[in-house]
Amino acid sequence: MLGLPAHIRACLFDLDGVLTRTAKVHAAAWKEMFDGYLRERANREGTAFVAFDAVRDYDEYVDGRPRADGVRTFLAARAIELPEGTADDPPDAETVHGLGNRKNILVLRRIREDGVEPYEGSVRFVRAVREAGLRRAVVSSSANCRDVLVAARIEDLFEERIDGVVAHERRLRGKPAPGTFLEAARRLGTEAGAAAVFEGALAGVEAGRAGRFGLVVGVDRVGQAEQVRAHGADVVVRDPAELLEAR
């Protein structure tokens, strides 16, 4: 009835871009932060300013990764090395964690000012999953996951939440490593082979494939279906509700 293989017993959902319309909010916050830093650096060193691309750079280096990993990966692509710093660094610190904290302030401001809207099709699918008796978890790299779920009024649809806070506490490697998805399956009492992963980020799709989950569903809302498949998705949909309509 859900358009899923019969052996699937649990569904693990990414947050941004799959359940909520926050991927663009994050991309805009990353661009604001990186452009500000890159412009400051270019002015200081007398070099050309090359802006952060909110589509290409976001998808390739940042989307789906833990915040600090996103900073490291993008800076490495620009051949920029910064001190790691610590998680307590102020947002004006020129460190990996400082830039990450600067981005977090910006995204929280945008969420507070603009609110959070869930995707209606995704909510409909999750409710159908619940009615069918399948287990459900949210798996997100964001440390703000719970706040977003509450703001979108969908927190009650999920039994478990594995987010950036849990990953830090459990010392789980972030996407594209499969550890957070595997932890979600473990908490739901389900083997990876009996769980379906729903991901919108290329790094998250890679994580689903690396964890050998029973099904990896790529949610492509930005027109990159070919890339999503290349990174390991078994099925690509524009919205999870398409699975209900195809049954």
Rank of each mutant, 00 (worst) to 15 (best):
residue 113 E to F: 00
residue 68 A to L: 07
residue 70 G to N: 00
residue 112 R to N: 11
residue 186 R to F: 12
residue 139 V to Q: 04
residue 51 A to V: 05
residue 224 Q to K: 13
residue 29 A to C: 01
residue 150 V to Y: 07
residue 236 V to R: 08
residue 105 I to C: 04
residue 4 L to N: 11
residue 198 F to M: 06
residue 32 E to Q: 15
residue 156 D to V: 06
residue 209 R to I: 06
residue 31 K to P: 01
residue 113 E to V: 03
residue 91 P to V: 07
residue 13 F to A: 00
residue 117 E to Q: 12
residue 82 L to S: 08
residue 17 G to M: 03
residue 208 G to F: 10
residue 4 L to G: 07
residue 228 V to S: 00
residue 143 A to L: 05
residue 145 C to R: 03
residue 95 T to H: 06
residue 125 F to R: 03
residue 181 F to T: 01
residue 190 T to W: 01
residue 73 T to Y: 10
residue 191 E to N: 09
residue 197 V to T: 02
residue 118 P to S: 11
residue 157 L to I: 06
residue 88 D to A: 11
residue 23 A to G: 12
residue 228 V to R: 00
residue 187 R to I: 10
residue 217 V to C: 08
residue 54 A to R: 15
residue 1 M to A: 11
residue 9 R to D: 06
residue 40 E to M: 14
residue 179 G to E: 12
residue 76 A to V: 12
residue 134 L to T: 05
residue 47 T to I: 15
residue 210 A to M: 03
residue 196 A to D: 13
residue 36 G to P: 00
residue 152 A to M: 01
residue 85 G to W: 11
residue 111 I to R: 09
residue 92 D to R: 04
residue 177 A to E: 15
residue 169 E to V: 14
residue 246 A to V: 01
residue 197 V to W: 03
residue 91 P to Y: 02
residue 165 V to A: 08
residue 110 R to F: 11
residue 51 A to L: 03
residue 26 H to I: 02
residue 149 L to V: 08
residue 183 E to F: 10
residue 156 D to L: 04
residue 63 D to W: 14
residue 91 P to H: 04
residue 51 A to Q: 04
residue 5 P to K: 11
residue 55 V to M: 14
residue 188 L to E: 10
residue 130 R to V: 13
residue 173 R to D: 10
residue 237 V to F: 15
residue 80 I to K: 07
residue 107 V to P: 00
residue 54 A to M: 14
residue 190 T to Q: 13
residue 174 G to Q: 04
residue 6 A to I: 06
residue 190 T to H: 04
residue 63 D to C: 14
residue 168 H to C: 06
residue 5 P to F: 09
residue 156 D to T: 09
residue 151 A to V: 03
residue 221 R to W: 12
residue 198 F to K: 00
residue 58 Y to C: 06
residue 195 A to S: 15
residue 26 H to T: 01
residue 66 P to K: 08
residue 237 V to L: 10
residue 241 A to Y: 12
residue 231 H to Q: 12
residue 219 V to T: 09
residue 58 Y to S: 03
residue 29 A to T: 04
residue 144 N to L: 08
residue 234 D to W: 15
residue 5 P to L: 01
residue 243 L to P: 04
residue 67 R to M: 00
residue 56 R to H: 14
residue 200 G to L: 04
residue 81 E to P: 00
residue 37 Y to T: 14
residue 60 E to A: 14
residue 123 V to E: 05
residue 212 R to L: 05
residue 37 Y to G: 11
residue 50 V to C: 03
residue 192 A to Y: 02
residue 153 R to H: 10
residue 128 A to V: 02
residue 80 I to D: 05
residue 56 R to A: 15
residue 170 R to A: 07
residue 179 G to S: 10
residue 78 R to P: 03
residue 95 T to Q: 01
residue 46 G to E: 15
residue 235 V to L: 13
residue 177 A to Y: 05
residue 200 G to Y: 08
residue 112 R to K: 13
residue 53 D to C: 12
residue 16 D to T: 01
residue 158 F to H: 03
residue 193 G to P: 09
residue 216 V to K: 04
residue 138 V to N: 02
residue 115 G to L: 05
residue 246 A to S: 14
residue 216 V to A: 11
residue 162 I to Y: 02
residue 205 V to I: 15
residue 19 L to F: 02
residue 174 G to W: 06
residue 142 S to F: 09
residue 149 L to P: 00
residue 45 E to C: 07
